[in-house]
């Protein structure tokens, strides 16, 4: 099957070119009709993102990541402290797929019907490339940040906060502002690409998500200390945004009326 997004973009460009060249005749009509068909083909895809389940899932995952970090520094040393951290990490990994499954099974299916989107070879290739790129960036960043990680790793929070006060931006500060902030915003906007047209307030959430790493960068300390509160706050913003979107979705899509006897 042809990529509907590429097809749609091609048709929209055809229309724009025809408008620009002043050809408002039959070609334009046909292109418009074709674009409408393409738009209809793409419409089912919106249900993957408009009910807020992705945001709730990602918000839960971020909270679990933050709890995992806090567990390691707040709780007293004991054999189960490490396991609790791993438990939160496992929860974080499962949060997104579980939330999407639950929303599909109990929210979308009963309100807008059962739908399965096609996942051709290009979808799997895209997923594999994304995983490889993410893993590569993570490994490279970890190697780059090893000196700063070693500086604070064994210390509890109230000590760690006083360890490093930078006069010049550290590597982790640069990452927070230069990479983490923009990537977080891009991810948030990608999740809300369809719904942001109806929910303009999501731009405020995007700004908050961007502002958190910037504020954290201005605080004393380094990435390992700041990552916890930043992740926690961003997770709360995602959860709140997802909850409001879900509430809107439930009000907009009522279950169908029963058949008349």
């Amino acid at each position: 099957m042809k990529n509907p997004i590429r097809e749609y973009v091609r048709l929209v460009r055809t229309i724009e070119r025809a408008k620009h060249e002043g050809r408002t005749g039959e070609l334009l009509k046909a292109a418009r009709a074709n674009a409408e068909i393409q738009k209809t083909m793409m419409r089912p895809r919106q249900y993957a993102t408009i009910n807020g389940a992705g945001e709730i899932g990602w918000g839960t995952a971020m909270l679990c990541f933050a709890f995992s970090g806090y567990a390691a520094v707040i709780l007293p040393p004991s054999p189960w402290r490490g396991w609790l951290g791993y438990f939160f990490l496992a929860l974080a990994c499962g949060a997104m797929p579980v939330c999407l499954w639950v929303s599909g099974r109990f929210i979308i299916r009963s309100r807008v019907g059962y739908v399965v989107l096609p996942r051709g070879p290009s979808w799997w290739v895209g997923l594999a490339v994304s995983v490889l790129v993410a893993a590569g960036i993570s490994i490279a960043l970890s190697l780059w940040l090893i000196p700063e990680m070693l500086q604070v790793a064994p210390l509890p929070v109230h000590h760690a906060a006083t360890v490093t006060v930078h006069d010049t931006p550290s590597r982790s500060d640069l990452i927070l502002v230069g990479a983490y902030g923009p990537i977080s915003v891009i991810l948030y906007l990608m999740m809300n690409a369809v719904s942001v047209k109806d929910h303009r307030w999501k731009w405020i959430c995007a700004l908050l998500i961007l502002a958190m790493p910037v504020v954290a960068c201005l605080q004393p300390g380094n990435y390992l200390e700041m990552a916890r509160p930043v992740t926690l706050c961003q997770g709360l913003v995602y959860l709140l945004s997802g909850a409001i979107t879900l509430n809107w979705f439930l009000r907009q899509h009522q279950p169908p009326a029963a058949d008349p006897e």
């Binding site: 099957m1 509907p4 209809t40 083909m41 793409m42 419409r43 089912p44 895809r45 807008v112 019907g113 059962y114 739908v115 399965v116 989107l117 096609p118 996942r119 169908p256």
Partner: peptide, 10 residues
Amino acid sequence: AGVKECDFLF
């Protein structure tokens, strides 16, 4: 054409 399969309600 945009989905793999769906039900009547959808």
